[in-house]
Write a protein that binds this DNA or RNA. Sequence first.
DNA 1: CGGTATCCTTAGGGATACTG
DNA 2: CAGTATCCCTAAGGATACCG
Lengths: 125, 125
Amino acid sequence: MKSMANIYDVYEDRCPTRMVLDRIADKWALLILDKLRRDAVRFNLLRREIKGISQKVLSQTLKKLERDGLISRQAFPTVPVTVEYSLTPLGRTLTDTVAALAHWAEGNMDAVMAAQRAYDERTVV
Amino acid sequence: MKSMANIYDVYEDRCPTRMVLDRIADKWALLILDKLRRDAVRFNLLRREIKGISQKVLSQTLKKLERDGLISRQAFPTVPVTVEYSLTPLGRTLTDTVAALAHWAEGNMDAVMAAQRAYDERTVV
DNA sequence: CGGTATCCTTAGGGATACTG
DNA sequence: CAGTATCCCTAAGGATACCG
């Protein structure tokens, strides 16, 4: 964990956008934030809902988001243990933007894929 | 370029959000879209404005964005050649969201960094 | 259930040099 | 100016096994 402490040291210039973009401009992070939009979700449920994410990457991403203060982790002393992840107030201020991004993705996927096909025809052939 | 053609093949399920998020949830891509918000920008100017990006990565990212139909490339037959990148109409539909993300980053950087310090004190010590 | 630890692979990206 | 080509290396991430 010590190695994460100096993550901002590489940015000599003070561009806040770049700093924080570097943190949240991550596919998995955005998907997780989106999944937590409604309510708290347990680890394995999150894993099942976000198809394709490995246990390792989910765990890592959750830890980063928690460190950034965007989500919080709550463990319940059940047997076996239950852990719920939920948005913090800070995280909640980001969800509208994330949702907008997701909404854009849904609405423009076809256009993007069409553009790709057109591009490939122009260049590959 | 052929290898990029089947990039969506890995997504057996049809989750559009994931597909497109995978494309645009990239730090450099978002920064480029943000820089092009006002008007067209030349390659090397873009490179200078986005500190820390290498020529290689800038070139790659621009090509991806062009393929996705978000930006367009226009070369002028000057000597030496001048190349301008600008947003397409499709790309323009995304800029508000990107700007919102950038704005969030600016406004909440301090909170994020404070959260990180608090987290590190809790866990590392 | 909710993780961590370990090993291993590969592709993402830096550095450098060259070109139309 | 706006790239491409090459080499090289590290670090992100999959697979597997184990644990409180």
